[in-house]
């Protein structure tokens, strides 16, 4: 009996080891595929214009020209654009998390009239291509005097404008057992308290995922800031990045790529340092099914 279970354990250990090895192999191969284009981007960001147009292409530019980064920062107000983006991202992410999680709670854990019909409406708002609501929305914001301000790209976030995140959080909330709510209600907690004291703390990974995805979406958002911001100084980085590209007069790839590296660096750093907290933080608190 013991011998048999020991053998089984050893066997399990061996298959585990093989499995781990295969996983590492896949992960490393995938990582190389994913990373290579980024290395290429980085390599291009260090080239001189004539090196960019060299065939066969050079992987390691010789001589390298780190001045491209300085030019992006000095010639164009790229640092300023990144700060603008940071402002927009922070303000609208807080708003989105609050308003969307409230709505998601209402849609997933409370019963109220028209709830399911309104949820369909909510889904439907994501289904119309934005290109055709662009002009009516522009007119609306113009009447409000919001052109050339950050209101059009931050304030709607406080009203759960991005239905995507209501939907996402609703789905996450639905994986949490309802008994928890009932128990808390029994102890006299209000619905708002259930939301704030039970569901939100239990949904840290979900909120983390939503925050990160929204922040990253907002960081990259292009169309709305393009339309509503006019002053060069007030542009966001995603729009500023596109100004390096020009089909008529040609793109300065080396500058574009240097800007690109700087554009994605903050997000990668934030992700790297938060993913552990966000994804593993909750295992400790655990969900007692």
């Amino acid at each position: 009996m013991t011998a048999w279970s020991l053998a089984r354990k050893a066997n399990r250990k061996r298959t585990d080891a093989i499995q781990k090895f295969v996983i590492y192999l896949i992960l490393i191969a995938g990582a190389v595929i994913v990373l290579f284009p980024f290395l290429w981007t980085f390599s291009t960001s260090l080239k001189t214009p004539d090196q960019v147009y060299q065939i066969p292409p050079q992987m390691i530019p010789d001589p390298a020209d780190p001045l491209n980064y300085a030019r992006v920062l000095v010639d164009r107000p790229f640092a300023r654009w990144m700060l603008n983006s940071l402002f927009v991202v922070v303000v609208s992410t807080v708003g989105t998390l609050l308003s969307c999680s409230l709505a998601a709670f209402a849609f997933s854990r409370l019963r109220w009239p028209l709830r399911d019909k309104l949820f369909l409406v909510l889904l439907a708002t994501m289904m119309l291509p934005t290109q055709v609501t662009l002009i009516p929305t522009f007119i609306l914001f113009k009447e409000l005097g919001w052109i050339n301000t950050y209101f059009p790209i931050t304030l709607p976030a406080w009203f759960a404008r991005n239905a995507f995140y209501v939907f996402l959080l609703r789905q996450f909330f639905m994986t949490i057992p309802l008994d928890l709510d009932d128990a808390a209600r029994m102890d006299g907690a209000s619905h708002l308290q259930v939301y704030w004291r039970i569901i939100l703390p239990m949904s840290k990974p979900a909120l983390g995922v939503a925050a990160l995805m929204f922040a990253q979406f907002k960081w990259r958002e292009f169309l709305a800031p393009l339309i509503y911001l006019n002053r060069t100084d007030s542009l966001t980085a995603a729009v500023g990045l596109r100004t390096f590209m020009d089909e008529t007069h040609g793109t300065d790839w080396e500058l574009m790529m240097a800007a690109n590296i700087m554009f994605m660096l903050p997000v990668v750093i934030v992700f790297f340092f938060t993913q552990r907290y966000m994804i593993q933080g909750v295992v400790i608190t655990g969900v007692k099914g």
Binding site: L102, L110, W158, S190, Y195
Partner: peptide, 11 residues
């Protein structure tokens, strides 16, 4: 129901 509507109100 009231809580539900109020919490969904921002949206």
């Amino acid at each position: 129901a009231l809580s539900g509507i109020l919490m969904a109100a921002p949206w």
